[in-house]
């Protein structure tokens, strides 16, 4: 069935549209990278502007690290991300197993509560969540930043679906062999849902790496700042040099680009399953 592609008017228009959308979506990122490499010899306010730096330099990156403790903020973010990824993988797998593979009284009701929680806008709970974390003495701690996101209701539902799809024969065979429900969880069911665990881990990673509102509220001590808060500070009134802001933004992009490249396929599935921005 190897027929040659004909060049049609419709085909040309399609590619023109695709390229225009590409410029709209990728252009700002490319521009930001160019800006980050522009040196003192470049007029960043030139009219007309130009893309290729005339005096390329990495000084902006050095300067960004120098002015704002980017490495420190990055380490803080990693702590929060690690807690959230582990928390979601463990907590959601366990709950998903119970809802998907076990039969017990009240299961439908309990599962329904998670579906309800998924619809709750956290912005509306901000003040009470802050008061609660404060009464626990966890404001201004990285654990306090991570805690509310440690088990995402959506992730519980994703894991439930995955566990519900584990072949019943496997579970029955485990029962016949005398495995109790903890052994069946670890040895039989978990290996079957590795893919969804990856998706859940990715969703938790992206959500906590990018979160802004909650850390903004929960942290006031800037030595505890996460990367998003640090970046926001980079843009603060002290620094009006767009090159520095661009360098900081580019630094924060590197981990997420690497992450995107490695887990692209899972990410796509995770997004299709309704994660991140929903």
């Amino acid at each position: 069935m190897n027929h040659r592609r004909k060049v049609t008017v419709g085909g040309v228009i399609k590619y023109i549209v695709l390229v225009l959308v590409f410029i709209f979506l990728a252009g700002p990122l490319i521009w930001e990278i160019s800006l980050a490499f522009k040196g003192p010899g470049d007029n960043v306010y030139a009219i007309p502007q130009y893309l290729i730096p005339k005096t390329p330099t990495v000084n902006n990156f050095v300067e960004a690290f120098h002015r704002v403790p980017m490495a420190h903020y990055f380490a803080n973010t990693l702590v929060v991300v690690a807690i959230n990824v582990l928390g979601n993988i463990i907590g959601c797998s366990m709950a998903g197993y119970a809802f998907g593979c076990l039969k017990f009284r009240g299961r439908g009701f309990a599962h329904g509560l998670f579906a309800l929680a998924m619809l709750m806008p956290t912005e509306g709970l901000l003040v009470s969540t802050f008061l609660l974390v404060k009464s626990m003495g966890l404001t201004n701690t990285l654990f306090g930043v991570a805690l509310p996101g440690m088990v995402g209701p959506l992730n519980v539902l994703l894991m439930t679906n995955a566990f519900a799809a584990v072949p019943k024969e496997l579970i029955e065979a485990g029962k016949v062999d005398g495995a109790n429900k903890w052994q069946r969880f670890v040895h039989i069911c978990l290996p079957q849902v590795k893919g969804t665990i990856t998706v859940v881990g990715i969703l938790a990673f992206v959500a906590s790496y990018n979160d802004f509102l909650w850390p903004l509220v929960a942290l006031s001590d800037d030595s505890k700042y996460t990367l998003t808060l640090g970046l926001n500070r980079l843009q603060g009134t002290f620094y009006t040099d767009p090159r520095l802001v661009a360098a900081g933004a580019c630094i924060s992009l590197i981990p997420i680009i690497v992450f995107f490249a490695i887990f692209q396929r899972y990410l796509f599935e995770g997004l299709q399953a309704g994660g991140i921005k929903g």
């Binding site: 366990m94 709950a95 197993y97 809802f99 039969k103 009240g106 309990a110 440690m150 088990v151």
Partner: peptide, 8 residues
């Protein structure tokens, strides 16, 4: 079975 749902 409820034990599994405690963390969540």
């Amino acid at each position: 079975s409820w034990l599994f749902t405690i963390p969540a």
